[in-house]
Amino acid sequence: MTASFRVLLLILTLALGGCGSAQVTPQTAASLQKEQTVAAVFFSKKTVDYDEQVYKVLYNETEHHESSFEGIWDVDQEYTDRWSKDLVDLGVNSQSVDRILEDKQALAELRKALGAVTLDAPLVLPESVKRALLEKNVRFLAGVRSPGFFVMGNSLNAVNCRLIFGVWLVVYDVRSGRQEYIEHLSLQGTVPVKGSLRELESNNLALLKEHGAKLFQERVPETMREALGRGKK
């Protein structure tokens, strides 16, 4: 076997591996239905990052604005409650993490650990958090982590903008301390605006909440369904 053929084979294996949908093992899928699972969603940045390309005739300018909703909108709670319900609909024995974990310190540490999850860094829960979860008979953590909301616009297209937020979906076995599943999704969709991109913030963030929830609902539960080996709806 020549070296170039082996490289080609490796590339093909990696490419095909990337195409296949990741799944949890059938044992884990069965355990998720029987044993206690906690749902947690964590946004590591409580901001909306706007980028708009502004046409200036002789050049293009990218303008950036950051809006913070920290302390104004409890995005983690809202998405965690929704995610927990989605999991229940999928037959997972799930509850919102804050309903189970009364220890605020452990809850903060869990969120911090979840915030550190990226594609190349598996979730690692501190021992104190694992202990607190095991004391409540929790076997799995079904976590979703997002770096925050990103909005892109173009001054030549004044009637809509693009809302984007990436999410990492993680299933972690608290008992074994092993990450059983991870999947990255880029959630994005068009949001109609009448003029300013910051209309997403009007009426208590109505457009951001509505379209963010829609994007989440369209992809995340479906991805989890596939991960549990149930195929597409």
């Binding site: 502004v54 200036k56 001054s155 004044a158 003029g195 300013s196 910051r198 913030e201």
Partner: peptide
Amino acid sequence: SCVALATLGCAHRLGPP
């Protein structure tokens, strides 16, 4: 068209309401 595009291009859509 150029004037219209230039005017549109100058519009700031990221300032406060």
